[in-house]
Design a binder for these strands. Structure first.
Lengths: 207, 207
DNA sequence: TTACAAATACCCGTTACTGGGTAATTTTAA
DNA sequence: TTAAAATTACCCAGTAACGGGTATTTGTAA
């Protein structure tokens, strides 16, 4: 299930997209926003897995918003929804971590397709865009997605240790371990009780 | 760590065993009992993983006690501690699910060895015993250890479903799912929050 | 050296799961 | 058909984990 958030200062466009996607199976629109600030609030509250955002927006532009979203929630896919001939802005969106860029003068059907593509973790680039240096992905210095300490703790979680045991083993406080747990859950886009343990067991042999 | 329970109506023998095992690393004596009833209570309270029990005991004999223990806690290994020439009783112990049988006229050192052997899940039979039809293990009709319903629920647990979700999916009550969870934890000898999920994930592909 | 990331730690509240019971009903097998 | 096993369901209490904050210290890189 794709949980979609839309940010776009032209409400009419939002309405059009909403109309198209409302009855689309597998897509749930968790909210819309008319500016960057509102988008960030929306992401924080609803944690979508895909965000469609305009680049030029009031309060905070889509580039800045994307940077923040990708930093805090690297698993969220961002699809930039731009007007034509703003190649410099598009480049910045790429650097900010966007997974796709589609022009506003595209059919809504193609927009839907782009959403599905980026939701799968792939990159979607509008055929009409021709930017030379397109090298998305991998702009954060993190080796993986998690920090050293987080991986260390994840490994202990995989061993079935409780937060208390992990805290004692690493000579840190219980709260600290819980904080790391929560940060990892947020960063990895997990949810629910066992998800982190499931993830830990899955990745256990991949460190 | 072997958590050991001892049942034997001759307290002197218990004392001897305790003396031997007290400083043995890897073995913790969680309690002793002088009759079958007391043994069952002990097992229930302390959940040992290995039980050493006499066959002839007051109130309830070791055979009956073993049957009940193996039914409720199949993971617990039972080592019968018998006097010589009671072959019929030994056969019954086998059928009751004992993992080993050692004669009382054996050195305590050998008793220790027998405990270690059965704790590893292997079968220990005193060399001086010669019963023809020895076919231990597998006396419960259960295919595996769990029932159909329990495996069904375990599979859903492995998928990360909560009890609530599992209940809805199977059209049964939340309490029922929780009961199955608890029964599985008991039968499998697990403990702690994540253990059942870990077990479920481990066995997921082995159904 | 100064900003940013990482690691540390605490607060509050809620929920899912565990651990301890008990018990009725249905199914299966002896 | 009758005893045993399996499935269903509920009670109470405790705790680990989650979800949401905030905040300080310690690195590290610009």
């Amino acid at each position: 299930m794709i949980r979609l958030a839309i940010a776009e200062d032209h409400q009419s466009l939002i309405d059009g997209l909403t109309l198209l996607l409302k009855y689309e199976e597998g897509i749930q629109i968790v909210g819309t926003a008319n500016d960057g600030d509102a988008l960030l609030q929306l992401v924080k509250r609803k944690e979508p897995n895909v965000v469609v955002t305009d680049i030029r927006m009031p309060k905070m532009d889509g580039i800045q918003a994307t940077k923040i979203i990708k930093k805090e929630y690297p698993h969220i896919k961002v699809l930039a929804f731009t007007m034509f001939d703003q190649e410099e802005a598009i480049k910045q969106m790429i650097r900010a971590g966007a997974s796709g860029y589609i022009l506003k003068n595209t059919s809504l059907k193609e927009v839907l397709n782009a959403i599905l593509v980026v939701a799968e973790g792939k990159i979607y680039v509008d055929p009409n865009i021709n930017v030379d240096g397109i090298n998305p992905q991998k702009k954060d210095n993190r080796k993986g997605i998690l920090t050293k300490r987080q991986m260390e703790i994840l490994a202990l979680i995989a061993q079935g240790k409780t937060s208390r045991e992990i805290a004692d083993e690493l000579f840190i406080g219980l709260h600290t371990v819980d904080t790391h747990r929560k940060n990892m859950i947020r960063i990895l886009g997990l949810k629910g009780k066992g998800e982190l343990l499931r993830y830990a067991l899955d990745k256990k042999y991949k460190f």
